[in-house]
Amino acid sequence: MFGFRRLPREVRTALALEPGERVVSHARAAGDGHVVATTHALHLPGGLRLPWHLMDRAVWDEEGLTITMTDGAVHAVRLPEPGLLPETIRERVTATIVASHRVPLDPGGGVRLVARRVPGYDTPRWEFIFDPGLDPEDPGLRALAEQALEEMRRSLGV
């Protein structure tokens, strides 16, 4: 119906699903394998599991999907027919974000303060996403980011 194909049984059984996690959408990857979106994560061919709350961005083009994680890792997969995956990924990643605010730190750039919902936790997890070119390990920049986060939390009452 509407071009939807069932996920092959062998693909479903090979997924390492957490309790309560269910398949939402999927698409066949170029070559071999499937990309499977679940309620908790995106599963790539080869068994790689990318939780929604750790994704920074997903970009689609004629080649397929490129995902950048909050730690800077980049994953790409070719998808000839993405089906409902673009909409599912956008909805799932967006649903994890409680708050997001960019703060300039120095003339070289800034940091994005992001609070995300994490499955199994009652309170959001805060993270720093530094602009490219800034060293997230620099103690001075970390201190400025921590100060900005405290100001933001105070203003939000959390």
Rank of each mutant, 00 (worst) to 15 (best):
L7M: 13
G33L: 09
R49V: 09
A99N: 12
A41G: 09
S100H: 12
W126I: 01
L85Y: 12
R116H: 13
M69T: 04
A30R: 14
T66L: 09
L156D: 05
D32C: 04
A73K: 13
L156M: 11
T39K: 09
T13A: 07
V59E: 14
R22Y: 10
G47S: 11
A14L: 11
V23L: 04
E151V: 06
L42Y: 01
T66F: 07
G83F: 12
M1I: 07
R92I: 03
R6Y: 02
A95F: 08
R154D: 13
A73G: 10
R22P: 00
V111N: 06
I89R: 09
A27S: 13
T39G: 05
R153T: 07
L7I: 14
V23W: 06
M69I: 01
G20Q: 04
R49G: 03
T68K: 05
G157D: 01
V77T: 05
A145T: 02
E81V: 13
R9Q: 14
T38M: 02
P119D: 01
E127F: 10
E10T: 15
P104R: 08
P132W: 00
L156R: 07
A29K: 09
G157E: 01
V24Q: 13
F128H: 14
G33P: 05
E63V: 09
L141N: 06
P19R: 13
M69S: 00
P139L: 02
L79H: 07
L113K: 00
A95E: 15
I129K: 11
T39Q: 09
G33Q: 08
V11E: 00
A95W: 10
R49H: 05
L79E: 06
E91A: 15
P119Q: 00
A27W: 03
A148H: 06
S25G: 15
V93Q: 12
V98G: 06
E91D: 15
V74G: 07
M55Y: 01
R5T: 13
P132K: 01
T13F: 05
D138K: 04
I97L: 10
R102V: 04
R6P: 08
R92W: 00
G33I: 03
V24W: 06
F2K: 05
D131N: 08
G157I: 03
E151D: 11
G109E: 02
V74D: 03
V23H: 06
A76R: 08
A76Y: 00
D135G: 00
T68N: 05
P107G: 13
S25I: 04
V59W: 02
Y121L: 15
L149F: 03
A143E: 03
L144D: 01
P82A: 04
A145M: 03
G31F: 09
E21L: 04
G64R: 11
D71C: 00
A27N: 09
P86L: 10
R6T: 14
E87P: 00
A14K: 12
R125K: 04
P45A: 05
V77N: 05
T13Y: 04
G133R: 07
E87G: 15
G47H: 11
R117F: 02
P45G: 06
E10D: 14
G109W: 07
A73D: 12
R49M: 06
R142Y: 02
L65I: 02
G109A: 03
A58W: 11
Q147K: 13
P124V: 05
D56G: 15
M152S: 13
A16C: 08
V59Q: 13
P80H: 03
P119N: 10
H40Y: 15
R12C: 02
A29H: 11
H26Q: 13
P124D: 08
D61Q: 03
E91H: 12
